[in-house]
Amino acid sequence: MNPDYLHGFLGGCLIGGGSLLALIVTGKIPGISGVFGRLLKPKQNETSWRLVFLLGLIAGAGLLFQLSEQASIFRVPDGRNWLVYAIAGIVVGFGTRLGGGCTSGHGVCGMGMGARDSMVATVVFMAAGMFTVTIFRLLTS
C-alpha cells in the first residue's frame, strides 16, 4: 500500500483521538472553526481551554515538522497567490461559522456522533471543494 495512505490513516487516528480527548475533558465539541470562532467573541468566560487546545495544535504540528521531513512538506497548489489565500480565508471563516462546522466539527465530530446535518454538510462542502478545484484548474491552465 502507498505509505501516504498509512500515514494518513495513522494521522487520522491521532486527529480522532485528540478530538475525543478534548470532548471528554471539556464536554464541548472541539471543531476547530467553532473553537477559533468563539475565541474571537469578546465577553466569553471559557476562552482559556480553546486557546490551550489551539496552542497544543500548533505545538503538536510544529513538533512533527521538526521530527519528520515528510511531515513538513508544504506545497502551494498551482496559481494560488496571496490574494487567493486572503479570499479563501474570508470565505472559509464566513462559511464555517454560518454552516456550523468545518472538516473537524462536521466531518469528524458531528458525523462521528451520528448527526445527520453533519453528514449533509460534509457531502456539500466536499462537493463544493471538488467543483472549485476543477474550475480553478480549468481557468488557470
Partner: peptide, 30 residues
C-alpha cells in the same frame, strides 16, 4: 439553508487554498 450555504462557501474556500481551519492554524508555527 444556513447550513447548506455555509457548507458551500466553506467548500469553495477550501478548494481555493487547500486550507481548512485546522491545517491553516497548524501552519502558523512554521
Amino acid at each position: 439553508s444556513n447550513l447548506i450555504l455555509g457548507a458551500v462557501l466553506f467548500g469553495v474556500g477550501w478548494g481555493l487554498g487547500g486550507f481548512c481551519p485546522g491545517p491553516a492554524i497548524a501552519n502558523l508555527g512554521a
